[in-house]
């Protein structure tokens, strides 16, 4: 039995396998519509995250399974003081697989070592959110046809954005990937990410504050929201929040074939006019996320379906 707590627990081969399954689900949804018949997914959301929870639930329903769970700690036994370990043991008696989101970092890991069913980390504080990274990887591969030989730009809050750190770690394992890190000086990528991932793996990168100057060289632009809750000081937030706004005009500088990603929700960092641009991949990214969660649920439940290889041609 296996869980998924951190994206790096999956090898590159396993990531490919999950993406192949997701592609096959997209091409042949009917083939997968009953593969989880009789199985139950428990969504244990100790903090609200409607988007992620609905994505997991939709994924399980589309596999023919059922869903039970709660969407905030107040409606769980945690409000009575039950430990994460006990909750995991109890829910293992009801469900075949658990998706957990928790504000405390490491809570899904604690659940995974106590549960008798697989646990998927649906986000733990500012720590890990592996299914978001699965969605990001699938979006890039599906939109551009490859995960190698890419120049990937990350723009906005690179300091606190956990999705950025996880995606950099995951993409660093592919050949020929270069990173362009675009942020205000105050929100630069933390030193430990730069050292532990980029320097250790000898991945080429450059840092800049100027989005327009580097836009023409990017194959992927990963935009992020500057999150108000990360700042202690309102003044600092207001000063930085509009640092980067991607507009239709700026998109004219970008390559014809490129993809704009965003983990959503967005505020104003991508203007609504960009949505019509075929390179705007962020809403399709939501769809890819659901297919990747379907592929992951199947993998962790050991459900194998033969993939139709003809689609590759």
């Amino acid at each position: 039995m296996r869980s998924l707590i951190d994206i790096l627990e999956l090898s590159v081969e396993e990531l490919d396998e999950l993406m192949n399954t997701a592609d096959d689900i997209m091409a042949h949804p009917a083939k997968y519509s009953e593969v989880c018949h009789g199985k139950k997914l428990a969504t244990l959301f100790f903090e609200p995250s409607t988007r992620t929870r609905l994505s997991f639930e939709a994924a399980m329903y589309e596999l023919g399974g059922n869903v039970l769970g709660f969407s905030e700690a107040a409606s769980s036994s945690a409000s009575k003081g039950e430990s994460v370990a006990d909750t995991a043991k109890v829910v293992s008696c009801y469900a075949d697989i658990i998706a957990m989101r928790h504000p405390k970092e490491g809570a899904p890991y604690v659940a995974s070592i106590n549960a008798t069913v697989p646990v998927i980390n649906g986000g733990d504080g500012g720590h890990n959110h592996p299914t978001q990274t699965l969605a990001d990887l699938e979006t890039i591969r599906h939109e551009l046809g490859r995960l190698t030989d890419l120049t990937v730009g990350f723009c906005g809050d690179l300091k606190f954005g956990r999705t950025v750190h996880s995606l950099i770690a995951a993409l660093s394992r592919y050949n020929g990937v270069k990173f362009v890190l675009i942020s205000p000086v105050e929100l630069r990528l933390p030193d430990y990410v730069r050292r532990d991932i980029l320097v250790t793996n000898r991945v080429p990168y450059k840092e800049t504050t100027d989005l327009e100057a580097v836009l023409p060289e990017l194959d992927v632009l990963y935009m992020t929201r500057i999150q108000k809750e990360r700042f202690f000081n309102e003044e600092e937030y207001l000063r930085l929040k509009d640092s980067y706004i991607l507009t239709a005009d700026k998109m004219k500088l970008a390559k014809e074939k490129m993809a704009v990603l965003h983990p959503l929700p967005r505020v104003n960092e991508i203007s609504v006019a960009v949505d019509k641009d075929p390179r705007a991949a962020y809403f399709r990214q939501v769809l890819y996320a659901k297919y990747m969660r379907m592929a992951l649920i199947m993998k962790l439940l050991d459900i194998a379906v033969e993939i139709d290889a003809k689609e590759e041609a």
Binding site: S83, K104, G106, V110
Partner: peptide, 13 residues
């Protein structure tokens, strides 16, 4: 020492 770590709320860990 991470205030967001699960060990801060679950004392038995």
């Amino acid at each position: 020492k991470n205030p967001r770590c699960i060990t801060t709320t679950e004392q038995e860990l």
